[in-house]
């Protein structure tokens, strides 16, 4: 058992120095005041947290929430039928699963850029539409809330497919057959038998999509305009351009508290590991 201690030592060091220590510093900063030259100093205060309720920032927080919720709902709607299809296919199941995962494993940055390439004024969609003569000037497809939502859905869709697939795959097919034998139409079977049984997967998928969407930074940064900034952009801005580290820290802590609460709720419901 002595060996175990040596094996875990570097991991404990990692947790103390690269996870807890930075967190403690940010927590302390969030309770301090911004200095004249963008530094951090006394006195201790709760003002940074009060500023979160300023309408300017509250809008950003609410927008992040709405965006994450909308992205989660769209992911669910798109992923459920796909997961059902994969779970019901017998021969190429592994191929389909890899097709779901493959874009997820390629660079997130490249995937986000791919949408810029498609959506911008000189992008593929606008060029193609203008070439066919359907439109005469470029449509403003990029730099708005819709583009951000699309980017979020595209980015985190696999997180929804896999847990739902996992619950559907374990489900006894006889249940759906019984419903059909008793006269339920296919849609009714899906909505009243299959979907309720897949609830653990749906729940896990929703949390797994909602959490990264809530804290998203790159997607709103690249695909969104000035009016689609999310809480991640607010944090980044406070630490770079605005140089208000205490307020940026307070926003981070609030975001972490939310994420932790969500994760805790999920882990309490789910006894098995998700991945």
């Amino acid at each position: 058992m002595k060996l175990r201690r040596w094996f875990l030592l570097p991991a404990w060091l990692w947790m103390a120095l690269l996870f807890l220590a930075p967190f403690a510093i940010v927590l302390a900063y969030s309770l301090l005041t911004r200095g004249t030259y963008g530094g951090v100093g006394g006195p201790w205060t709760l003002e940074n947290y009060q500023r979160l309720l300023d309408p300017l920032y509250l809008t950003i927080l609410l927008r992040s929430f709405a965006m994450a919720a909308a992205a989660t709902a769209i992911c669910l709607a798109l992923a459920f039928p796909a997961a059902l299809f994969i779970a019901r296919s017998n021969r190429h199941r592994n191929l389909y699963l890899q097709l779901v995962m493959l874009p997820f494993w390629t660079s997130f940055l490249v995937r986000t850029y791919a949408w810029m390439f498609l959506l911008r004024d000189t992008g593929l969609i606008n060029t193609a539409l203008q070439w066919t003569g359907i439109i005469h000037g470029p449509l403003p497809l990029l730099y708005n809330n819709g583009a951000v939502l699309l980017g979020l859905v595209y980015g985190y869709l696999p997180f929804m497919v896999l847990p739902i697939y996992a619950t559907l795959e374990r489900m006894d097919p006889a249940l759906a057959e019984a419903a059909a034998d008793l006269g339920a139409r296919p849609m009714v079977t899906v909505l009243r038998i299959i979907a309720p049984l897949a609830m653990p997967g749906i729940l896990a998928g929703s949390v797994l999509v909602f959490i990264p969407c809530l804290g998203a930074y790159l997607t709103p940064d690249l695909l969104g305009g000035g009016r689609s900034a999310m809480v991640g952009n607010l944090v980044q801005n406070q630490f770079t351009t605005a140089r208000d580290w205490p307020f940026g820290s307070a926003v981070s802590i609030a975001l972490m508290a939310l994420v932790t609460a969500l994760l805790w709720a999920l882990l309490r419901k789910q006894k098995e590991p998700i991945a």
Binding site: V235, Q236, S252
Partner: peptide, 13 residues
């Protein structure tokens, strides 16, 4: 599950 940007700023701090 920590948002990347939060990891980034806390390591910077």
């Amino acid at each position: 599950v920590t948002p990347e940007i939060v990891t980034g700023i806390s390591l910077l701090a």
